[in-house]
Design a protein around this nucleic acid. Structure first.
Lengths: 243, 243
DNA sequence: GATTTAACATGCTGTATATCAAGTATATCA
DNA sequence: TGATATACTTGATATACAGCATGTTAAATC
């Protein structure tokens, strides 16, 4: 059973039960396991569950942030809208990840756009209820801060990679991120287009295609219609290190 | 009276009084005005004030984070240590800015290096005392989160600029940052080397020098031994916009 | 089944940018 | 005082990368 089937099974189960109880829900972010029963019930009363089709926009940068997000099933990309339609994907979000963002405490705005890479189910939790619980539940607040901080670290890391490595190194890092952190497998179904991969790697689509082809020629990966397979992790790690 | 003299007057006054009371201290970060008198006294008992000379390392990336930081006077740079000694400056820190970082809640490590760009006085506040106060003072916690979130937004912004603009645009943004946000003046003394400016702009030192010279030839800035003066803000804004 | 559309692929060309080499000025130090 | 280091400057060269043109393939639409 590959990662793809895990993702879809999440989706299917949840779709049959869009208004399931938060207590006992196995698709909620790990963050919510730190809530008390009362708090979880409060969340349940102030949440809505929505199903998105592949390609749909979940939240648009600049819009009002009324809710925080928990990804129940599917897969989403989170990106900064840059200059002249050029986007920078800063995170691929898989179940059962939480999405907050700097807008929660700053200006109640979304500072990135989130779109579905495949059919995806999302729980929206009222942001006022959410921050209220943070104010009252110290342990939950700390866990929230940890999650927040992890995302910042990954942006630091991304900034360094994008500005200091050249294309092969950046592509290697992107692929290692996908194989190791997102799909946790040496093979995954291509829900990401070449354009997506280029926006993760900070290069043009054309360049991304060329580098991927080079990696294939060098026996590092194998690309089929809708799958990417990692053949030589050692070599990929080496390219990531050498630049 | 230019910005430089403001900076030094902060330093001088404070140096005569390194162990001044936090209450009434005009050099503390605005964050601390949200503390109660008791809390401020607690901070005072658990803080130390240290003077750094120009060029000295205040905190080194990777070391244990025992304290959070408030910059009383002077000027510091905050940078990520990248590949092969290449640094990425992500923030210039002026009085009376606060420095926390993702390490507070994650792993109690510094994820960037901070060094003094001129003689600088720093208050170090025990991180356990600091987080303890956050747990208890909701308003303070919210203000801390705001400060934290602002810094994240500026890293988002920096990531976009560094990956999507070319050199003149990146340099324009760096200079606008220095003139508008840091020195808040159209002229400042050069505590930053060309190397520093290049690390802010994500380019080589040689390239930074060339672009600065071009800006001078085009009448945008005027460079003397130890001063940079903004002559044509309109043109600089235009370059920032056009890329 | 023909037509359109979207994603993928690839060689060519121009340019943005790093790197190197060589030089000047300024400060530091024996 | 001369010697050495440090920051800055400049032009020449090499290359990484984007952008274009053009083509291919596969899916979608009529």
């Amino acid at each position: 059973m590959n990662q793809f089937s895990i993702f879809t099974s999440h989706m299917d189960t949840n779709c049959q039960n869009p208004e399931r109880h938060c207590i006992g829900c196995e698709f909620k972010s790990p963050l919510f396991y730190f809530l008390t029963t009362d708090e979880l019930n409060l969340v349940e009363k102030n949440k809505i569950t929505v199903h998105f089709k592949k390609g749909e926009t979940i939240r648009k940068q600049g819009t009002y942030m009324s809710h925080v997000i928990s990804v129940n099933s599917g897969l989403a990309k989170l990106y900064l809208e840059g200059i002249e339609q050029r986007n920078a994907i800063i995170r691929i979000v898989k179940p059962t990840n939480f999405i907050g963002g700097p807008g929660i405490y700053l200006d109640q705005r979304h500072h990135f756009t989130i779109t579905a890479l495949m059919d995806t189910t999302i729980c929206f939790i009222d942001v006022a209820v959410f921050t209220d619980i943070i104010d009252k539940n110290k342990i939950f607040a700390h866990e929230f801060m940890k999650d927040f901080s992890k995302n910042i670290l990954s942006v630091y890391n991304r900034l360094l990679i994008l500005t200091q490595k050249q294309m092969p190194g950046r592509m290697a890092d992107t692929l290692l991120y996908l194989f190791d952190e997102i799909f946790e497998s040496n093979s995954f179904s291509m829900h990401l287009s070449r354009q997506d991969i280029s926006e993760l790697s900070g290069m043009s689509k054309d360049s991304a295609i060329k580098i991927l082809r080079e990696f294939q020629h060098d026996g590092i990966i194998h690309l089929t219609e809708n799958q990417m397979k990692l053949l030589d992790p050692e070599k990929l790690n080496m390219i990531s290190k050498t630049g």
